[in-house]
Amino acid sequence: MNADLLSSVWQFFCLRGGELSGIVGLSLMVSGSAVIIGAVLGIPLGAFLGLKRFPGRELLLRVIYTLMSLPPVLAGLLVYLLFARTGPLGFLDILFTPPVMVVAQVLLATPIITALSSAAIAAKEKLAMDTARTLGASERQAAWMVIKEARTGILAGIMTGFGRAFGEVGAVMLVGGNVRYQTRVLTTSIVLETRQGNYEFAIALGLILLLLSFVVSSVLLKIDDSKLR
């Protein structure tokens, strides 16, 4: 990074610091909410798929794995069609608002959290479950122990889900519209600054995005580590 770039970045912070904090806050709020909702939906479903064997389980897992690679722009399109004025949920009138951006990111994060939770739990299922039962756990207590034992894998799912939501641009651009002070997030800002030729600003935003991802991952890993004590 040369001196010009650093000077541009500093200029960017000085000139648009207020707007930037709004963008960062909205990015964290939208992706954070999406990941929390995705975890609430995905972890129990992942636990169910990891612990139970039933007809159709394999097919369901394959569908979820396929949805892990759902293109963000396609997720955005689906949510757009759902919430457009003529769509089935158009009456809610929330298109181009943060809540609908959350919905789109939930669609992207949930399959990842579900699939990775399911894989982590399935990997621990046999031995951890049996061990808990040999020590006197009921089926429910043993299942809870398996989930606790799989927490590192589940956290990896949450972190990956957050990364997917936080770093995507297609879905939020489509359903949020990149409206200044309302739906502009870090990734859509990067696109905008690049289109306007403000490459230094775009890079600065990218660095902020990476730094925030680093902080969120560190916090989650710290939580995992503290559980070992």
Binding site: T134, L135, G136
Partner: peptide, 25 residues
């Protein structure tokens, strides 16, 4: 009863917590 399995599995926590688990149950 208590059983020690062929592939001994200790929970990913402290030794204390491992020993405490059966008692807590």
């Amino acid at each position: 009863m208590c059983m020690v399995l062929q592939n001994t599995y200790l929970f990913n926590t402290s030794v204390y917590q491992n020993v405490a688990y059966g008692l807590q149950l």
